[in-house]
Design a protein around this nucleic acid. Structure first.
Length: 486
DNA sequence: GTCCCTTTGAAGTAT
DNA sequence: ATACTTCAAAGGGAC
């Protein structure tokens, strides 16, 4: 099976984990960014989408400084290999405590059974879970202490109070955001909204609170549904302690935050990767070894559970209304049916292959989670504007906060690969190019993509002293009057 | 009804 | 190897 990279495991998205920020003077940048971001938000609001070139330039300059160098192999490898070195070099700097505790990804074996016989988490597992899933409140009831910890940290730029969008204290602390329901901001979830990480059910305190042994160890009955919880298979990853029968009963990791009693938060809840881990590991390999690839489960929109996968867009079969045929004579109906049949034949062939969507990346996950909040805080409705704000907030996030989403995105991709071993993003390219017109080509800004201008970009991005980060064209294009440019 | 806009990141394609 | 393009989500707006 191509999906699981047996060796590294790190390969899956490991690269993106290395969010390389400019370390030097980051704090100063953050502070200055407070101001610029405030200004930016105002700009976004006042002009909705159109930002003045001036602001673009100024912000892009500062952003460019923060923006990670190109993800060249050289840099990636460099970053990985010299992580420890960097820690030493960055005396008192950002690597003092690894910002990416999970990177490189370290699997702790005993996590397959992270619970002690009494049902509580083993210390190792707790530590690991905290490390691995910062969103988890492993230490139940420690929100206050975490808040204190958070407060002790330097204030996040995300605390910026924009003139139009309210920002709440600690909002950038996603764990708090997720686990503390703000009374101020209604977390609006669409009924059909499915958090892509729902399978990562470890979000739920219920599962990991030491005082509350995991259901599968209790062999108890789900208090909400009264449905007995089936015992967990030991092979199943502790990250996805789902059983097929329980899938539909699982509260949304954010949804459960909305404590409307007796009110199902997720009507029509669709589990994103339903029983991903029921198909996980042993089962998947079993199926793959037993059946040809195309027969291995999830190549249909309905999972074994019967729950459609959100990554699968089932072709929208138009319900040709039968009532429209009322009044037509039989021959007309027959003819119509015949034509419909022929037409639908072609379409069916086209649509037979369900559209498996790409897994969401870190930013998309962040957007999905924060959109409702931003919408609630702002008067804006346009997604484009909202996305601009979200983009800025994304940049304003601390490394740790971003790391959470990178990690989740990595899990998403991993899961996606497990579920759709043969799938490639290429499939969607083809599907869309057949179905509809090619998407608009983004108009290049004047000067953009201009080779003559390119050197200025890399030069501006990385400076002359970091020539190794420059792209080749920039490196070898002679630049006039730069002094020292090759 | 369809496409655009707008964001970032992953992955594919083109050079 | 590098640059460029497409697609993920979202929903109002334009046509």
């Amino acid at each position: 099976m191509p999906q699981l990279n047996g060796g590294g495991g790190d390969d899956l998205g490991a690269n993106d984990e290395m969010i390389s920020f400019k370390d030097e003077g980051e704090q100063e940048e953050k502070i200055s960014e407070n101001l610029s971001a405030e200004r930016d938000l105002a700009d976004v609001k006042s002009s909705l989408v159109n930002e003045s070139e001036t602001n673009q330039n100024s912000s892009s300059d500062s952003e460019a400084e923060r923006r990670p160098p190109p993800r060249s192999e050289t840099f990636r490898d460099k970053t990985r290999e010299s992580l420890e070195e960097a820690a030493k070099r960055q005396d008192g700097g950002l690597f003092k405590s690894p910002p990416y505790p999970g990177y490189p990804f370290i699997m702790i074996p005993d996590l397959t059974s992270p619970y002690l016989p009494n049902g509580s988490l083993s210390p190792t597992a707790r530590t690991y879970l905290q490390m691995k899933w910062p969103l988890l409140d492993v230490n139940h009831g420690s929100l206050q202490s975490r808040q204190a910890l958070k407060d002790a940290r330097s204030p996040s730029p995300a605390h910026i109070v924009g003139p139009f969008c309210l920002e709440f204290p600690g909002q950038s602390d996603l764990s708090l955001h997720q686990f503390q329901l703000s009374n101020k901001v209604p977390v609006v979830q669409h009924p059909h909204h499915v958090h892509p990480l729902t399978p990562l059910i470890t979000y739920s305190n219920e599962h990991f609170t030491p005082g509350n042994p995991p259901p599968h160890l209790q062999g108890d009955v789900d208090p909400k549904t009264g449905i007995p919880r089936p015992p967990q298979h030991p092979d199943i990853s502790p990250y996805y302690p789902l059983s097929p029968g329980a899938v539909g009963q699982i509260p949304h990791p954010l949804g459960w935050l909305v404590p409307q009693q007796g009110q199902p938060v997720y009507q029509g809840f669709r589990h994103p990767y339903p029983t991903a881990l029921t198909v996980n590991a042993s089962m998947q390999s079993f199926l793959s070894s037993r059946f040809p690839h195309h027969m291995v489960p999830p190549h249909h929109s309905l999972h074994q559970t019967g729950i459609p996968h959100p990554a699968i867009v089932t072709p929208n079969v138009k319900q040709e209304s039968s009532h429209s045929d009322i009044g037509l004579n039989s021959s007309t109906i027959l003819y119509t049916l015949h034509r419909k049949h022929q037409d639908s034949k072609k379409e069916d062939e086209k649509k037979k292959q369900p559209h498996i969507k790409k897994p969401l990346n870190a930013f998309m996950l962040y957007m999905k989670e924060m959109r409702a909040k931003v919408v609630a805080e702002c008067t804006l409705k346009e997604s484009a504007a909202i996305n601009q704000i979200l983009g800025r907030r994304w940049h304003a996030l601390t490394r740790e906060e971003q790391a959470k989403y990178y990690e989740l995105a990595r899990k998403e991709r991993q899961l996606h690969m497990q579920l759709y071993p043969g799938w490639s993003a290429r499939d969607n390219y083809a599907a869309n190019q057949q179905g509809k017109k090619k998407k608009r080509k983004r108009d290049k800004q004047p000067g953009e993509g201009n080779d003559a201008n390119a050197p200025k970009k890399c030069r501006a991005l990385f400076g002359l002293d970091q020539l190794s980060f420059w792209c080749k064209p920039c490196r070898y294009t002679p630049v006039v009057s730069t002094g020292g440019q090759p």
